[in-house]
């Protein structure tokens, strides 16, 4: 177990060094959510009635978008690894799939936290004023990290599934798409009724509701627990899938 941890740490360090040097991908992953936030706030925000300032409403959604953009980097780097000879080298050192993917996921989480900070900073500049307690902020961070971790593992799976890094990038489009049919950018009750069922019960909605509630000092009910349940479920499925896929791809 301690060996697994040591391997994962060494490989997370690798992942971070690689992302630091993959400047264009990282800048894309960090700047796009900010640009999108500005776009939503200043282009669409005036037309959307959410009962609060739109920037206040939209920030949790943008944080989720960050996870989507970050996930494409993760999928591409996993896929790159599978293509080259380094996996064979790792395997001949008796390092299995788990630490290799864990390294990528850890790097992905760190990248995401940086872009999250960036988004929050810009949001604050354009008028986002959270109303939260330290405990609630911590809980919000917990839910967000859980979501980012789950999405990162899922992206790693996409990276294992894809035969080429380009395809891996495409796989993650759906992760980026998922926030739109949710309460991320517009209240669900403004959507057509046939979409309500999906929008209310898809994984992104409880995550966004928890973040919004916790950051704005509103009551959140069971949303955080549902969100964590979704994240745990996604994580378990991704972990299982990645184990199987890694063995199949690397053999």
């Amino acid at each position: 177990m301690s060996e697994l941890l040591a391997h994962s740490t060494a490989l997370a360090g690798r992942g971070l060094r690689l992302s630091r040097r993959n400047v264009d991908a990282v800048i894309t992953a960090m700047l796009l959510p900010v640009i999108l936030m500005l776009l939503f706030v200043y282009f669409f925000g005036g037309a959307i009635d959410t009962g609060t300032r739109y920037v206040t409403y939209v920030v949790p959604g943008v944080l989720i978008l960050c996870a989507g953009f970050g996930s494409s980097t993760t999928a591409v780097s996993v896929s790159d690894d599978m293509k080259g000879g380094i996996i064979d080298r790792f395997r001949s050192l008796d390092i299995g799939g788990a630490p290799v993917l864990a390294g990528h996921v850890a790097a992905s989480v760190v990248r995401n936290l940086i872009s999250t900070t960036l988004v929050l900073g810009v949001a604050f500049l354009i008028g986002f004023r959270p109303d939260t307690s330290p405990g609630a902020a911590l809980a919000a961070a917990g839910v967000l990290i859980a979501f980012i971790t789950a999405v990162s593992w899922l992206s790693a799976v996409a990276g294992l599934l894809a035969r080429t890094p380009e395809a891996a990038g495409g796989f993650t489009f759906f992760v980026m798409f998922l926030p739109y049919p949710s309460s991320a950018f517009v209240p669900i009750d403004t959507m057509p009724s046939w979409l309500h069922g999906f929008a209310e019960h898809q994984p992104v909605t409880p995550v966004i509701e928890s973040l919004r509630g916790l950051l704005l000092g509103q009551s959140v009910g069971s949303a955080p627990w549902i969100a964590l349940g979704w994240c745990a479920g996604l994580l378990v499925v991704s972990l299982a899938l990645s184990g199987v896929l890694f063995r199949r791809r690397a053999a």
């Binding site: 040591a6 391997h7 060494a10 490989l11 360090g13 690798r14 060094r17 690689l18 040097r21 993959n22 080259g84 000879g85 380094i86 064979d88 080298r89 790792f90 001949s92 050192l93 390092i95």
Partner: peptide, 25 residues
């Protein structure tokens, strides 16, 4: 140890970083 036909080093790491990582692993 196996050195295959496809280079198993990270192009985006320095020579030293590659070796230190392998040593840690």
């Amino acid at each position: 140890s196996l050195t295959g036909q496809f280079a198993a080093v990270d192009e985006k790491q320095t020579g030293e970083e590659n070796l230190r990582m392998m040593a840690r692993l």
